[in-house]
Design a binder for these strands. Sequence first.
DNA 1: ACTAAATAAATGTATATACAAATAAAATAC
DNA 2: GTATTTTATTTGTATATACATTTATTTAGT
Lengths: 155, 155
Amino acid sequence: MYICAMKLEEAIKQTKPFSSEIQKLFINIQLTASHLNCMMSQRLKPFDLSPQQFNVLRILKGKHPDSYSNQEITERMIDKSSNATRIADKLLEKKLITRTANKADRRAVDIRITAKGLALLDEISEQLKREQFVPAGYNEEKARLMNEWLDELRG
Amino acid sequence: MYICAMKLEEAIKQTKPFSSEIQKLFINIQLTASHLNCMMSQRLKPFDLSPQQFNVLRILKGKHPDSYSNQEITERMIDKSSNATRIADKLLEKKLITRTANKADRRAVDIRITAKGLALLDEISEQLKREQFVPAGYNEEKARLMNEWLDELRG
DNA sequence: ACTAAATAAATGTATATACAAATAAAATAC
DNA sequence: GTATTTTATTTGTATATACATTTATTTAGT
C-alpha cells in the first residue's frame, strides 16, 4: 500500500477486455481504494501516523471530551479487522490518547483523545486542506450518485 | 479483512453528517473494497488461496502456456506492494506454478501456471458462477459510469 | 576489456493483519 | 448464592505488508 510512485492509470496492464463492466468495477474499486490509502499514508507519514491510527484519532475527536470503549471504536472503524487495542497502544505511546478502566464495568476501558491528539488532528487537517486533493471536474452530484450505488453494491 | 459477518450498511455508525459527498465517497470506496476483498477471501478459503494468490494465478492463466517474469506479474497485480516472489513461493509449494531461470537473462525467472493451477482456476470459476454475487438491480450501464468516474477520481 | 551504473529477483525486518485463545468481569440461570 | 454463559479486552501467533538491502547479472561508458 505504501508504493505510491506508481501510475495507476496503466495500472494492471490488462490487454484483454474485461468480461463485464461489473467485473471491471470490482477491480477498479479495489485499485482506487489502494490508491486513496496510498495517498493518505504519504500525507500522514510526516506526522508519524498510519491511516488506521488517524482514523481512530478522528473517531475519538467525535466523542471528545467524553470517551469511547475499545468496542465502540471498533464499530466505527473503516477496517474492522484490525485490533483496536494495539492501535490504541501506539497512540498511547505518543500520548495522543488516554486509556483508563471504566468505573461501571471493570472489563471495559475508557479511551479519550488528549489535547496533544486534538492539536495533531488540527495540524493534519490544515495540511490536507492546503493540498486539496479532489480532482478537477469532480462534483458533489457525481459523488452522491456513486455513494448511492456503492451502498447498493454492498447491500 | 477476514471479518465478514459484519453488516457494512450500519458500518461505521457515523452519526454526524459527512462534510461533503466526496468525503463520504472516499470512505465508501475503502469500505466497499474491504467488503469485496472479504467476500473473495471467504470464497477462496475452501481452495486454500488468498485473494493475492488467486490474482497471480489468473494473471498467469492469461499468458499460458507462455511465462511471465516476476516483474511482469507485479505490473499486473492489483496490489503492487506485495512481494511477487513470496506469493510465487506459496503457489510453487502447492505446485500450481513452475519457476525456472530465463535462458536469455539469467537474472530473470520464467513463471508458468501448471495444469493443476489451471484446473483449480476452473473449479473456482465454476463455484463463483454458481454464487452469482452481483446484487439485483445492478446493471452494466451503472457499472460503466462508475468505472469512468473512478478513473477520473484517481487521475 | 574494465569499470560503473542499472536491473531482476531474493532476502531481511519491523510492523500490521486475521484470526484463535486466554483472561477477567458481569449477567443470567437454576 | 453458586455455576454457567456471555461480554470486553488483551495476548499469542502465523502470515502478509511495506519497504530497505543484498546478490547476481546485464548494460553502458570510456
